[in-house]
C-alpha cells in the first residue's frame, strides 16, 4: 500500500467521497427520510398537534373502503391516461412534421415549446379565461359558429377533459422534442433501404419509424404518465376539485386530508400508495426498455 500510485488512488477515492457526500446528504434529507417518515405516519393517527398514535393498517383499510379515494384514484388515472395516450400520438405526429426540413422550422418548434416554460398556475389562469363561458374567446368563437356555449370548467363531463387538453397543450413541446431527437437518430440508411424495397410513406412509418422509436416512445409515455399522476395545481386553481368531485385527484385528496382535515395518517397513506404506483410504472419501463433494446438494431 506504500507505492505512489496507490497513494494517489487513495487520495482520489477520498476526494470522490468528499465530492459525493453533500449531494447524498441533502438527497437523503429531502427524499429518502421523508419517504420513510411517510411510511411511518401512514401507520399512525396523527393531527400534527398531538403525538402520533400507532394504528397499524387502519388508514389503508379506511382508504380502500372510502368512495372518495377511489373516485380520486379514478380521476387521476383518467387524467393521466387520457392526456398521455392522446398526447403521445399528437406529439409523435408533430415530431414527424418537424423532422421534415421546413423553412422556419426552428422558430415553429420554439413556439410549441414555450408554454412548457410557464408554470401550471400561469397556464391555468390563462385557460380559465380562454374557457370562460361569458367572456372567453373560445365560446365566443363557438357561438359565432352557431354552437351552444360549452361550460368547459363547470360541466361535470367537460371539466376533466378541458384540464386534460390544457395540460397536453402545455406539455406537448417537451415530449415532442424528445421524440424528434429519436426520429432524427434513426439511421437514414434504414429508411432508404425500405424506400428502395418499395415501401410507401405509411409503411415506412409503421415498419421503420415506430419500431426504431419503441424505447423512446416508452420513455415518453411513462415519464408523461408519471408527471400527470401528480396533478394538483390545475384543479386547485381552476375548479377546486369540482364540479362535484370531477377534478379531485389523489394529490388533491392528500392535500385536503393533511391540511383541512388534519389527518396526516390518511394523507401519508395516499402518498405511499402513489409512490408504489410510480415505482411499479417505472419498473415496467425498465423491463420494457430491456426487451426492446434486445430487438433493436441500434439504440436510439
Amino acid at each position: 500500500m506504500a507505492s505512489p500510485s496507490s497513494l494517489a488512488e487513495r487520495k482520489m477515492r477520498r476526494a470522490g467521497v468528499a465530492l459525493v457526500t453533500p449531494a447524498v446528504a441533502v438527497i437523503l434529507l429531502i427524499s429518502i427520510i421523508p419517504l420513510i417518515v411517510a411510511g411511518y405516519f401512514s401507520l399512525t393517527k396523527f393531527d400534527m398537534i398531538n403525538k402520533p398514535q400507532w394504528v397499524g393498517l387502519e388508514n389503508y383499510r379506511r382508504l380502500f373502503g372510502d368512495e372518495a379515494f377511489w373516485e380520486a384514484a379514478t380521476n387521476t388515472f383518467y387524467f393521466a391516461f387520457g392526456q398521455v395516450v392522446v398526447g403521445v400520438v399528437v406529439a409523435l405526429m408533430v415530431a414527424m412534421l418537424f423532422s421534415q426540413a421546413l423553412k422556419g422550422g426552428a422558430a415553429m418548434r420554439t413556439v410549441v415549446y414555450i408554454p412548457q416554460a410557464a408554470s401550471y398556475v400561469v397556464i391555468s389562469l390563462i385557460w380559465t379565461f380562454l374557457f370562460d363561458p361569458a367572456i372567453g374567446p373560445i365560446n365566443a368563437a363557438l357561438n359565432g359558429l352557431g354552437i351552444d356555449t360549452i361550460y368547459f370548467l363547470t360541466d361535470q363531463n367537460w371539466a376533466m377533459p378541458s384540464i386534460m387538453v390544457m395540460s397536453l397543450w402545455r406539455n406537448l413541446g417537451y415530449f415532442m422534442v424528445i421524440l424528434l431527437a429519436g426520429i432524427q437518430a434513426i439511421p437514414t440508411s434504414i429508411n432508404e433501404a425500405a424506400h428502395v424495397d418499395g415501401a410507401n410513406a405509411f409503411q415506412r412509418f409503421f415498419l421503420v419509424t415506430i419500431p426504431q422509436l419503441k424505447s423512446t416512445l416508452l420513455f415518453v409515455f411513462v415519464t408523461w404518465f408519471l408527471g400527470a399522476m401528480q396533478m394538483f395545481t390545475q384543479s386547485y386553481v381552476m375548479t377546486q376539485g369540482g364540479p362535484i368531485n370531477a377534478t379531485r385527484t389523489l394529490v388533491y385528496r392528500m392535500y385536503d386530508s393533511a391540511f383541512t382535515e388534519l389527518n396526516i395518517g390518511a394523507a401519508s397513506s395516499i402518498a405511499v400508495l402513489l409512490f408504489l404506483a410510480v415505482v411499479l410504472a417505472s419498473l415496467l419501463l425498465k423491463l420494457g426498455q430491456k426487451l426492446f433494446s434486445r430487438q433493436e438494431l441500434s439504440t436510439p
Partner: peptide, 19 residues
C-alpha cells in the same frame, strides 16, 4: 365544519344536476 361544508356542497351539486 371545514370538512362538513365541502362534503354537503358536493351532494347538493348532485341534486341540482338531477343525479
Amino acid at each position: 365544519m371545514l370538512a362538513i361544508g365541502p362534503a354537503i356542497k358536493i351532494v347538493l351539486q348532485k341534486a341540482i344536476l338531477g343525479q
